[in-house]
Amino acid sequence: MMTIQPPTHVPVLLQEVLDNLVLPPGARVLDLTLGLGGHAEALLGRCDKAASYLGVDRDPEARYLARRRLGDDGRLEILAGNYEDIWTDPQFLAWTGTHAPGGFDAILADLGVSTLQLRTPERGFSFRDEGPLDMRMDTNSGPTALEWIAEQTDESLADAIYQFGEERASRPIARAILRAHGEGRLATTRDLAQAVYTVIPREPAKRKGQSDPATRTFQAIRIAVNGELDRLAAALEAAVSHLRPGGRLAVISFHSLEDRIVKQTLRRLAGTYDGPGRVAPAPLPKILKLIHPGGIAPSEAEAAANPPSRSARLRVAERLP
């Protein structure tokens, strides 16, 4: 376990989450991405003493710090896992069977990378500070980013950078990264960023709102290493199946790839066909009602006060009877 001080954590779209999740007496709440517990702290503050709150996170350091933050609240249980696989976990099934046999009143999924992960150089998520090329959300399993890169070809790496980072220069960037690896010049986050800069030079002073040229590549490799989008749609469908009638699902995404999957999945479950230029073969089953169909973006004040929130979007849906 790393010995670090918990960073200042500002939960994104907090008021909007509180405004849109319904918490009746004895509420049953599922937090699929507990993180450092910012949303959980606020939601528990809105719940009565009879409520039950289940927080799930794959990151052992996040679970540890969330427990420190939230204390020994008897309403709270924290499980190791991720939103894709938790549905068949024996501990999850046992907890829901006891505490939420009829489903949940509120389910929250905050899909962003946590402040902890971004600001801990040893985790390798950011090139702001030098650290090893790790990028795993669960540091106890799976290949590191460096190990994953070592297994790629020019084509497979370029495809991942294009698909998950929407980076137009994916092919020359992939060649530059693998060239650096082959020459023994790829060990840290800054090494990876420097490989990108050989293709897209970094300007001495960025304009306001302009991202670093390495941002898209880092995002793409992180998504690939953690399989973040592999089963997101299926996980959302599983979450909806665990909602009580009238219960609500709230999902916060941070980039267009995530948001597109969330939007299309919720629209499909709301009976809205989302295939442009095509005709739906038959009416789709309608089990959800969309709340704020266009999603909710941060206010100008929040975006200014908390820059990581700028790209966030909250989508909310309610389970129909």
Rank of each mutant, 00 (worst) to 15 (best):
residue 40 A to C: 06
residue 261 I to G: 10
residue 169 A to C: 12
residue 300 E to A: 15
residue 212 D to Q: 10
residue 192 L to E: 10
residue 29 V to Y: 03
residue 197 Y to H: 13
residue 51 A to L: 07
residue 139 T to V: 13
residue 105 D to A: 06
residue 253 S to C: 08
residue 303 A to S: 14
residue 235 A to P: 04
residue 109 A to V: 06
residue 246 G to V: 01
residue 260 R to W: 02
residue 234 A to F: 01
residue 288 L to D: 14
residue 181 H to D: 08
residue 80 A to S: 14
residue 179 R to I: 01
residue 259 D to W: 05
residue 251 V to Q: 08
residue 279 V to M: 03
residue 295 G to T: 10
residue 286 K to C: 15
residue 49 K to Y: 04
residue 78 I to V: 15
residue 317 A to N: 06
residue 20 N to Q: 12
residue 245 P to Q: 06
residue 175 R to H: 11
residue 80 A to T: 13
residue 31 D to G: 07
residue 151 E to V: 01
residue 321 P to E: 09
residue 203 E to L: 12
residue 49 K to M: 10
residue 242 H to G: 00
residue 98 T to G: 06
residue 129 D to L: 11
residue 271 G to S: 10
residue 312 A to K: 07
residue 100 A to F: 09
residue 209 G to A: 13
residue 116 L to P: 01
residue 170 S to I: 01
residue 104 F to D: 08
residue 35 G to A: 03
residue 69 R to W: 02
residue 113 V to T: 12
residue 250 A to D: 04
residue 279 V to H: 00
residue 35 G to D: 07
residue 102 G to V: 05
residue 316 V to M: 03
residue 119 R to L: 11
residue 95 W to E: 15
residue 259 D to H: 05
residue 262 V to Q: 08
residue 128 R to Y: 07
residue 270 A to C: 12
residue 198 T to S: 13
residue 70 L to N: 09
residue 230 D to Y: 00
residue 302 E to K: 02
residue 285 P to Y: 08
residue 123 R to T: 08
residue 47 C to Q: 01
residue 52 S to A: 15
residue 213 P to G: 09
residue 9 H to I: 06
residue 260 R to N: 06
residue 67 R to G: 14
residue 234 A to I: 03
residue 192 L to H: 07
residue 50 A to D: 15
residue 215 T to G: 11
residue 258 E to R: 03
residue 260 R to D: 06
residue 13 L to R: 01
residue 178 L to Q: 05
residue 168 R to W: 05
residue 265 T to A: 12
residue 237 E to T: 09
residue 295 G to E: 09
residue 233 A to V: 02
residue 268 R to Q: 14
residue 222 R to Y: 03
residue 211 S to C: 12
residue 74 G to H: 07
residue 21 L to F: 02
residue 314 L to C: 00
residue 284 L to V: 04
residue 45 G to E: 01
residue 103 G to Q: 06
residue 321 P to W: 00
residue 42 A to W: 02
residue 222 R to F: 03
residue 217 T to R: 03
residue 85 D to C: 12
residue 35 G to F: 00
residue 59 D to V: 05
residue 262 V to F: 10
residue 215 T to P: 07
residue 210 Q to F: 07
residue 253 S to T: 10
residue 147 E to H: 02
residue 316 V to E: 03
residue 130 E to M: 01
residue 236 L to C: 05
